[in-house]
Design a binder for these strands. Structure first.
Length: 581
DNA sequence: GCCGTTTTCGGCCCGACTGTTTTCAGTCG
């Protein structure tokens, strides 16, 4: 396994410690940058052992960082970090994770209120210790308290985008174990929820003992929580819990259904079975003979058990896609047609290295073309997103020319000149109308002022939706899962206005965002709003994030007709142009 | 800490927002 992730964390921690200690901001930034470069570096940095020159040839990594990377490759640690870490209490770094708490505040908490951990912070809030600090009013303390509650509420579930690759990689490894016939993931992961509590795997194997052995002795396992004949449970690094259940192939469908849930969906199905004089459990759907004990233990043959489809059919119900097996969905409703990754033919929100992407314009277009798309929109950041190297009006004009040129040059795909233009706090857009009118597509997104109240957020977003030159509202709430709540506008009002003004709402497929979220999508779909599913790609591999957006869309019952990325080129281009006439 | 070259030091993004203040400090992107 690559050392990049661990190494990246080390540099991030160095930056955090320096931050709390009040070091030079540029030095802190440089360390953060190195951390990011390492995290995103495509190959294992361990390959640079002894090659300082190679390391420093990477932009952003200088002599000092190269030395520390080499030290880490050699010894597995960075001495400077060990030294730095001894200067401050360990728990302070956690405090930096609290939204709204920065290094200055954390330092003051430490030195003036003896707060050195999240627990201490909670105590300090309740015993009023913080109120005696200058410049700390009730509002501020209340905000911190809310942030803490938010962290606690969402902190122990991992994001879909973390869980799914872990599950897939583990399945791939375990399928190599001799005797293993199949493994699938179930649970909330299969339902595509935005966060996952633990990962459930179901396996069929001719040699369950060997599979269990391989599972519990995997390289990332830090604790075995359970190890039995049919179920093993382990904890991996980073607090991930994984359950492996070994079952008979003949009962695979029943087990998959049972462990996919949701609990509410299972209850509904079981009640239905009872009414029909049957019993449903994880081993199958059985005729209920009124006898004691489980039907399978008494040798009763199931009516259905091998596949999910068999069981739904036996219950006289339509098969339900896992994404729709939530409390708010009825098992009796035939599922609507749902959008699929294969249906997506256009990416309408992507960045190049003109702003904060890593792809050149050409690389972006080629990447989109290789995915079989008929359209790619180039939507770099606007000027107010200074952090993201947003384009000044002059740079945007030149960028538009470059995009038109490449559109003429590269055949087989339409390249749209666009912008991801900031929706400023008061609802104004970041470029004037004359410039916006020159663009083929305008994605308007909120990036700053993401804590403003609901009323302001609503009028802010309404202003963008109603703007005649805006096509799509990008990541409408600006939330970051487990990290930032984002805006809470009046969604029904937004969707109503979006329908009226023919403006499209985005599902940002980045698993950190998934914004709109599933519940919003469902509402938007019901209200007749058109939806875009965009990856917001900054790197070539970001195009693969599409599947998270698709899962979210499907949970919101979005079909291909209402998803503009699934439209034909003719229909899409005609709609885009229509907003300009 | 990194970079660039008008090169071995000086510059590195900075405006918007919030909560607190009464002119500003801290956080965020």
């Amino acid at each position: 396994m690559s050392i990049n992730r661990k190494l990246s964390t080390q540099f991030d921690t160095i930056a955090s410690v320096l931050e709390v200690m009040g070091a030079n901001a540029f030095k802190i930034n440089a360390n953060r940058r190195v951390a990011r470069i390492i995290k995103e570096y495509p190959t294992d940095l361990a390959e640079f052992a002894g090659d300082k020159k190679g390391l420093t040839s990477i932009e952003g990594i200088g002599s000092g960082s190269a030395d520390r990377i080499l030290e880490f490759i050699d010894t597995g640690q960075i001495n400077e970090l060990t030294q730095l870490a001894s200067e401050i209490p360990e728990g302070l770094i956690d405090l930096l994770e609290v939204p709204g708490l920065g290094p200055k505040t954390v330092r003051r908490f430490w030195q003036e209120a003896e707060v050195t951990s999240l627990d201490e912070l909670r105590k300090a809030i309740s015993d009023g210790r913080l109120e005696s600090l200058p410049r700390f009013g009730t509002k501020k303390i209340e905000n911190i308290s809310d942030s803490l509650a938010f962290m606690e509420a969402s902190g122990d579930r991992m994001r879909l985008g973390t869980a799914l690759p872990i599950a897939e990689s583990l399945i791939e490894t375990l399928l190599q174990v001799p005797g293993t016939r199949k493994i699938e993931y179930a649970g909330s992961l299969r339902r595509g929820r935005e966060t996952i509590g633990d990962i459930d795997l179901l396996a069929v194997s001719d040699d369950p003992d060997a599979l269990a052995e391989a599972f519990t002795t995997g390289p990332d396992v830090i604790k075995i929580l359970a190890q039995g004949k049919t179920k093993c449970s382990v904890r991996l690094e980073r607090g991930v819990q994984i359950d492996l259940r070994m079952i008979e192939d003949s009962a695979f469908g029943a087990a998959l259904m049972y462990f996919t849930g949701s609990k509410e969906h299972n209850v509904e199905l079981r009640e239905r079975a009872i009414k029909a004089g049957q019993r449903l459990n994880e081993y199958g759907l059985f005729p209920d003979d009124g006898g004691e004990g489980t039907p399978q233990s008494r040798g009763i043959q199931p009516v259905a058990s091998r596949t999910e489809e068999d069981i739904y059919e036996a219950l006289e119900l339509p098969w339900q896609p896992p994404e729709l097996r939530e409390q708010r969905d009825s098992a009796e409703d035939p599922p609507p047609p749902l959008v699929t990754t294969d249906a997506i033919r256009a990416e309408l929100h992507a960045h190049t290295n003109a702003s904060d992407g890593v792809m050149t314009l050409r690389e972006l277009v080629e990447q989109a073309k290789s995915r079989g798309y008929h359209t790619i929109a180039v939507t770099d950041h606007s000027k107010s997103s200074g952090q993201a190297n947003g384009l000044s009006p002059d740079r945007l004009r030149a960028h538009i020319d470059a995009i038109h040129e490449i559109n003429d040059e590269i055949k087989g795909i339409r390249v749209l000149a666009g912008s991801e233009v900031d929706i400023l706090a008061d609802g104004r857009l970041d470029y004037d109308d004359e410039l916006l009118a020159r663009l083929d597509i305008v994605v308007a997104s909120p990036h700053a002022a993401l804590t403003q109240d609901s009323k302001k957020a609503t009028s802010r977003l309404l202003a963008a939706i109603e703007h005649p030159l805006v096509h799509i509202i990008g990541h409408p709430t600006g939330r970051i899962i487990n990290k930032r709540e984002g805006l809470s506008p009046d969604m029904p009002r937004l969707f109503e206005s979006a329908v009226e003004h023919d403006t499209v709402m985005e599902i940002n497929a980045n698993p950190l965002r998934l914004d709109l979220r599933d519940t919003h999508v469902r509402l938007a779909v019901e209200m007749g709003c058109q939806i875009a599913i965009n990856t917001d790609s900054h790197r070539p591999e970001d195009f693969d994030l599409l599947r998270y957006g698709i899962l979210t869309a499907r949970r919101g019952r979005l079909g291909p007709k209402q998803c503009i990325n699934a439209w034909t080129a003719r229909k899409l281009h005609s709609w885009l142009a229509g907003k300009r006439s």
